[in-house]
């Protein structure tokens, strides 16, 4: 009996140690890169870096103001269009839609989601850049919003579906209309999912963000799997993180937790 227990404990300890080491290795790569960046780059960080335009190649000084401002603009424009459209489409999918039409929308959203960003870039270029005769934040923002819509829609749908039926029925039974129920109970409940679910899933008690994160994670992992098989897979990979953040911001889920922290 004790021999068996010893063996079981040994296996347990070995596995714990192994997984711990692997986790440490994973994180350490990130830290090495960060440390390297800070070590070499920190001295160049000053006010100019944030406020000045880049100097021509070879010259010292200058900053990245245009890139910072441009990113902000692009993200802002993308959020203005992509988030509301995706959000309401997600509400439709989860709450209103019929079976067939929803299937179609879901399929299209997933398809759009798997389109390499270069293709979307070319699309924006053809539709916006060429007729307007110059690159613009608008074109960039539109391209990004096109990527944002399917992700926001699908993750919104997932959030809403995770809200238990009983919550909907509670509101409807008080005489709420369907829209009122969605706007005043279901969406807030999706945001507070961890709180009303904490009894059943105590590990989510403290980490609300994880609850918000989970359904998206599911979608995204599925998507990455697809992306790996097409040429632009790694390209998609690199953009998914910021997109996820945006998708979350759209639901008011707050900031995205660090990738490693929330993965369960």
């Amino acid at each position: 009996m004790t021999g068996r227990n010893k063996y079981r404990n040994a296996v347990n300890n070995v596995m714990l140690t192994l997984s711990g080491i692997c986790a440490a290795v994973t994180v350490s790569m990130l830290f090495v890169i960060l440390a390297y960046l800070v070590y070499n780059g920190f001295s160049s960080l000053n006010l100019d870096f944030f406020t000045q335009l880049p100097k021509p190649t070879g010259q010292v000084g200058g900053g990245m103001a245009n890139a910072i401002l441009g990113s902000a603009q692009v993200v802002l424009i993308a959020s203005c269009f992509g988030l509301p459209i995706g959000f309401f489409a997600g509400i439709y999918l989860a709450e209103f839609g019929g079976k067939k039409f929803c299937m179609l929308v879901r399929y299209m959203a997933d398809l759009l989601n798997g389109v390499p960003s270069i293709v979307i870039g070319i699309f924006a270029w053809t539709v916006l850049v060429v007729p307007m005769h110059h690159f613009s934040a608008l074109a960039g923002g539109m391209a990004l919003s096109l990527m944002l819509i399917p992700i926001t829609a699908r993750s919104t749908e997932q959030f809403l579906l995770e809200v238990p039926r009983s919550m909907r029925e509670g509101a409807l039974a008080l005489g709420a209309t369907k829209w009122k129920t969605i706007a005043t109970v279901i969406v807030p409940a999706a945001r507070h999912h961890d709180r009303h679910d904490s009894g059943r899933r105590p590990h989510l008690r403290r980490d609300g963000a994880a609850a918000v994160y989970r359904p998206q994670q599911r979608i995204l992992e599925h998507r990455i799997f697809l992306a790996d098989r097409n040429a632009a897979g790694d390209d998609f990979h690199s953009r998914r993180c910021s997109l996820r953040r945006l998708a979350q911001a759209g639901l008011g889920g707050g900031t995205c937790p660090a990738d490693d922290g929330a993965r369960r």
Binding site: A173, A189, R195, H196
Partner: peptide, 13 residues
């Protein structure tokens, strides 16, 4: 016609 359900279902408020 009000209704009370089998499991308590307060809103997250």
């Amino acid at each position: 016609v009000g209704m009370v359900f089998q499991r308590p279902n307060p809103f997250p408020k």
